[in-house]
Amino acid sequence: MEKIIELKNLTKNFGDQQVLKGINLDIHQNEFLTLLGPSGCGKTTTLRIIAGFEEPSGGEVLFDGIDISAVPPYKREVNTVFQKYALFPHMNVFDNVAFGLHIRKVDKQIVETKVRRMLDLVGLSDYENRDVTLLSGGQQQRVAIARALVNEPKVLLLDEPLGALDAKLRKEMQFELKKIQKEIGITFVFVTHDQEEALTMSDTVVVMNEGTIQQIGSPIDIYNEPENRFVAGFIGESNIIDGIMNEDFLVTFDDVQFECVDNGFPRDEPVDVVLRPEDIDIVKPEEGKLQGVVRSVTFKGVHYEIVVETRHRKYRIHTTDFCAVDTPVGLTLTPDDIHVMWKTPY
């Protein structure tokens, strides 16, 4: 895939606060890329720099290989879906969507065709003449998406576009956005702090924290192979345990030695061990490598969340098998369920 946007050592300061601390990121053609991270980590700022609303303090933004630092927002081939939609309240649905085409003095006939097709795509064909201020949140969201997409940008930037919607609508829109992106085949740069949303929608997930990129990878990579404790903790509800890497393929935590699939660490290196809740198996006490007692059981719809307390800590486990509270149990792990990672400052 060809690169369309490259961020090179991008920094941004607000006063004496450094909000972006050297972002390096390649965004490819037709990619659905998500910036994922906790609130305040710099996602919006990154997006605003790409759109041209903020100037970077340092580094470069390349678009199709050309530095666009000096290009004003209205000349960039990107469009934004704003966090709170930012629809023009003095225009109806049609005129909102047609705004960009009007500006570019597109022929009236063509404007009508394009706007209608776009409204069709987002499922608002009958809403042309509606007052945008009277639409529901989900409908406003769709207008905002249509208004951006009708300009056929090379890249669409979306800043937490689903944040204000209720859970059910959110799921629907996630599905639709993904569908639209596939249909028209352009690059989406999507911002969210919701890890589930990021994992289900994206081709590439960029995990950010405090103005730095923690990991870039496919959802599966990010989920299965988190590179550090922060990513592991942010994605899912992993058990993160201090351990010692005794030698290649052998790690000790909670006073028990386990086989694992990691190597290349110095002898007896302190490491973080990440265990996914769904990777831990509950067995009879005598069959387990760790022993504990069930402390709580919560039904989560598809699986149970079970908390097992051992001598050292509480483990969070997801399983479809029920286990009664206060039952003594054993826990086992296969080598590839154990993710060993370097300790980081986070």
């Binding site: 759109a51 041209g52 609303f53 004003p72 927002p73 209205y74 000349k75 990107v78 469009n79 934004t80 704003f82 966090q83 709170k84 930012a86 629809l87 023009f88 309240p89 705004f99 960009g100 500006i103 570019r104 208004r147 951006a148 300009n151």
Partner: peptide, 19 residues
């Protein structure tokens, strides 16, 4: 954000002001 939206959609400063 309405002003930014207008510029985002291609309106220069004068057009943003007018429209």
């Amino acid at each position: 954000s309405l002003i930014e939206a207008a510029m985002d959609l291609g309106a220069n400063r004068l057009q943003t002001f007018r429209m």
